[in-house]
Design a protein around this nucleic acid. Structure first.
Length: 304
DNA sequence: GGGATGCCTGGATG
DNA sequence: ACATCCAGGCATC
């Protein structure tokens, strides 16, 4: 099987930080700076041989898939321009320095939705394991072009609808199996159109997608940000909630609406991008480092 | 409409 | 060892 290579000169881009930041769960690390997966029906390897180079290797023959991969990895985004729109405060500054080169991907809506349905109260390694199990048991087989080893893509909605809830449970999905199956059915039957969300405003899309079983505000915003590119979607999980409350609201409890208003006003047009930097950064801090951060007298004061 | 509680399950914590 | 807690939420009451 022929492998085609595409090299991109790009900077700043940190592939490791990007693929290991918990936005996508299907890439398997095969070398210090290389990851592999199956996209559509093709094997793909993405690597960063040099600081300013991204290399994509694939068995795909059609140009469409190559375009798709360039979109997936967001190779055309002017990251520097995005970063200049971030708010200027000590925490964001630290996160920017610590996570230089982190990018948001642009994933396939169905796989992204399925991944985040499976993410509830699970840690990243466990989410990866479930995604991997579902893929190997129910996905399309693709031979590795170098080793011949079998790899499997994530199954589409129709396939999961056909396999049923129990099959998902036996892939360790637990109570999430019901949601995954429910969403798969709606999508496979055509009751729910994932593509239609592309034409909607963020608010419309959020309203629509939270109508799916198991999709609340957090998962909705993850999918809207990571798959549809709604740059103002801002997933608030326990970590981010902790930052917002402890750092920006000085430990005070605030209403959901107040928090939401603050997010939109303060983080701006690329709020979702800021969120990813903050999320990834704060998870790496020790308790002591975190305490130092929230006690920083230079941290911003929110005036309402 | 904010605040508890159950849901699967594996790994961490005591 | 063994119990208990809790993890990147959601639905329900």
């Amino acid at each position: 099987m022929a492998i085609r290579s595409f090299s991109y000169s790009i900077h700043p881009y940190d592939l490791e930080k990007t693929l290991e930041s918990g936005q996508s769960f299907q890439w398997i690390r095969t070398a210090p700076h290389a990851w592999e997966s199956v996209v559509e029906r093709d094997w793909v390897r993405v690597s960063q041989p040099k600081a300013r180079q991204i290399l994509i290797e694939t068995t795909a023959k059609n140009a469409a898939l190559v375009d798709q991969l360039s979109g997936y990895f967001q190779l055309d985004i002017d990251l520097k321009r995005v970063l200049t729109a971030f708010p200027k405060d000590p925490l964001v500054g630290q996160a920017l320095r610590a996570r230089r080169g982190l990018r948001l991907l642009r994933q396939d809506p169905w796989i992204c939705l399925a991944s985040f349905l499976l993410s509830s109260t699970k840690q990243i390694v466990q989410i990866k394991e479930i995604v991997h199990l579902i893929s190997t048991r129910h996905g399309n087989p693709v031979a590795h072009p170098e080793t011949g080893e079998m790899l499997y893509g994530f199954p589409d909605a129709a396939r999961i609808a056909q396999e049923g809830e129990q099959a998902m449970r036996s892939c360790k999905a637990g109570f999430r199996a019901k949601y995954l199956y429910g969403c798969a059915r709606s999508i496979a039957e055509g009751t729910f159109d994932l593509e239609a969300l592309r034409e909607m405003s963020l608010e419309e899309a959020r309203l629509k997608i939270t109508g799916l079983p198991g999709v609340g505000p957090k998962i909705a915003d993850c999918v809207l940000l990571f798959a549809y590119g709604f740059d103002r979607a801002f997933p608030v999980d326990v970590w981010v909630h902790r930052v917002l409350q402890d750092y920006y609201f000085h430990g005070k409890q605030v209403a959901r609406t107040t928090m939401h208003q603050f997010i939109m006003d303060y983080f701006g047009d690329h709020a979702g991008y800021v969120q990813q930097y903050l999320f990834d950064y704060i998870r790496s801090l020790s308790k002591a480092e975190w305490r130092r951060m929230v006690e920083d007298p230079a941290r911003p004061t929110i005036s309402k």
